[in-house]
Simulated assay, not measured.
Amino acid sequence: MTTTAPAASAGTTAGTRPTGFVRDTAAVFVRESKPLVRDPFSVMFSLVQPLVFLGLFGPLLIGAAGGDVAGTLQWFVPGILVMVALFGTASTGANLLFEMQTGSHERTLVAPLSRSALLVGRALKEVVPLVIQGTIVVVVAVPFGFAVDVAGLAVGLVILAVFGIGFGALSYTLALSCRNRDWMFWMVHQTLLFPLMILSGMLLPLDDGPDWMKVAAAVNPLSYLVGAERALLAGDFGDPAVVGGAIAAIVTCAIGVVVGVRAMRRAS
């Protein structure tokens, strides 16, 4: 009797021993990144929609601008980068939905890992494909006359990465809320995604739009990201839009992580 109790206690302690937030986050990040390494085609496939917009919508804008290819690309390509960040992170919750349906997520919940790390590690994973895809979009546009400031591109990708962490966390939160109704995830996803995109000015300028549309754009964080990317990729670091975009990205990241961590901690 006196020998079995300590053994059970030791086993319980070993099984529930916290491992540290940073180490847990790194472990989750590596776990979530392995599918990208094994199947890099998935990263390329996610580029189809932004490249379609660039290839089909771009010529229409060039025609409307009187054939000014370079000027149109300087305006349009930064918006496509924001589109990459939006599309790439908005659907990440679908992966979590699949794991919950197959029981994989429940197995991670009983692992000796911080619940916060489960969320943050997943969100950080979205930075890798976002940076790769954004770089590819710029490389594709350069031969057609797009001039990019390399330092501005680097800073712009960092801002998009910060935004992507927060927006990806919100997508995971939505998935946790819709775990038994996956159709609800896609309904909310599609209902919000395209209004956010259109009301950001990434596809068409909103200067001549109605007042209600301008008001909606003023509270849309993507509007500030688009403005920041246009300034940064042109090398205009002093543009106030850069500060606005950075603030929008940081606020989105903070809200997404806080809300997501709370949802993950409540998950069972």
Rank of each mutant, 00 (worst) to 15 (best):
A65Q: 12
I80P: 02
A70E: 10
I62R: 05
R115D: 12
S91P: 01
H105V: 02
L61M: 13
V137L: 15
G66W: 03
L97Q: 14
L81T: 06
P143C: 05
F144L: 15
V150S: 04
L86F: 12
E106Y: 12
A147V: 00
F146H: 03
L73W: 06
E106A: 14
P50H: 00
G93W: 01
A111H: 09
P112Q: 14
F98Q: 10
V137Q: 12
V120T: 10
F87D: 00
A90T: 07
K125V: 02
L97C: 07
V139K: 13
G67N: 09
G152S: 08
Q49S: 05
T135S: 12
L130D: 01
L61F: 02
A111D: 08
G145N: 02
L119S: 03
M100L: 11
T92C: 04
H105Q: 11
L86S: 13
P50Q: 10
A65E: 09
A64V: 09
L97K: 00
E126P: 02
G103Q: 02
V148P: 00
G145W: 00
L73Y: 11
L86N: 03
A90V: 06
G71L: 05
G58Q: 11
A111I: 11
P78E: 12
P50G: 10
V142P: 02
V84R: 03
G121A: 04
I80F: 08
V77W: 09
P59L: 10
L47K: 08
L97R: 01
T72N: 09
A90F: 08
V139M: 15
V127N: 01
S116I: 05
P112E: 14
A151F: 00
V110Q: 07
F53Q: 06
H105N: 12
V137N: 11
H105D: 01
V138I: 15
V140Q: 12
P143K: 01
V84E: 03
G63Q: 05
F144Y: 15
L130W: 03
E99H: 02
G55K: 10
S114Y: 06
T102F: 01
M100G: 06
A117N: 06
I136C: 12
F98I: 11
V139T: 13
T102Y: 02
F87W: 13
V131T: 09
V84W: 00
V140C: 12
G66C: 11
T108H: 13
I62E: 11
D68R: 06
I80Q: 15
F98M: 08
G103W: 06
R122L: 04
V139E: 09
F76H: 09
V110P: 07
L56F: 15
Q101T: 04
V140D: 04
M83N: 10
V131N: 07
F144C: 07
L47E: 13
F53N: 14
S114R: 03
A85V: 14
T108W: 15
A117G: 04
V120Q: 03
L61W: 00
F98S: 05
V137S: 12
V52H: 07
A117E: 03
L47R: 06
L97P: 05
S116W: 03
L119N: 08
P50R: 11
W75M: 12
E106W: 04
V148F: 03
F53G: 08
V131K: 04
V140T: 05
V138Y: 11
P59A: 09
S114L: 09
Q74F: 00
V150N: 01
V150K: 01
G152K: 00
V131Q: 07
V148L: 02
G93Q: 04
P143R: 01
E106M: 08
V48S: 13
P112H: 13
G134T: 13
T108D: 04
F146P: 00
